[in-house]
Amino acid sequence: MASDVAEGGFNIQPMEQFVIKPLFGGHELNWYTPTNMTLWMGIAILAATLLLIVGTRRRAIVPTRTQSIAEVFYSFVYRMVEDINGTAGLKYFPYILTLFTFVLAANSLGLVPYSFTTTSQAAITVTLALTVFLSVTIIGIIKNGPRFLKVFWIDSAPLALRPVLAVIEIISYFVRPVSHSIRLMGNMMAGHAVIKVFAGFAGALGVFAVFPVLAIMGVLALEVIVAFIQAYVFAILTVIYMNDALHPGGH
């Protein structure tokens, strides 16, 4: 691993930032040990609370700035659910809002220097995606029974093609949690690793460090967009998958 510890002052360890450590020192890591990830998840809850609960505490008809942001945030997710799922989907709106809030807060907080990016962890995104996958499947089966299988049976296709399409649909259905989770994790990890690599260059270049620093600024600006878009994509994919459960074969 020449890139990890190399000669000439390049000491770049882009992956080190993703290491999970116990928060209060020590090396033991039990399932309940508070870690640096726990800290940043707590901060994510705090940020969401500050925006959505403390920001709206006055319940003003003419909103303050924070309250406006909270309202826009709320209506953004609300409209997303309503547009795609219709009114039937509004039952699951709190669930979607929670997911979106969590992912967005975690993504954005991960951009703070020296912070820990919760959503760059495979365990987190896979758990989230599996939760979505399982809930969609279970809700779909409970609500529709055998009709849920129409998701795989494309009525609009020619009859001869339908079995082939069914196989493809089944495969793509089960690949969903994989791409759903890896997309989020990969995006978060890639951006941070790139920033870290540039930061390593900056440490070794002396005066010329200004170029990597400029590059970091650019990448960071891009990462802000990516943080939002990935949260949005995660949420909207959840909503689209949920649509299969609510209206199977209705696409």
Binding site: I20, L29, T35, M41, G42, A44, I45, I124
Partner: peptide, 14 residues
């Protein structure tokens, strides 16, 4: 550990 804290976080947030 991660999954435990994720579940705790999500439940609180929810």
């Amino acid at each position: 550990n991660q999954i435990f804290w994720l579940v705790v976080t999500l439940v609180i947030l929810f």
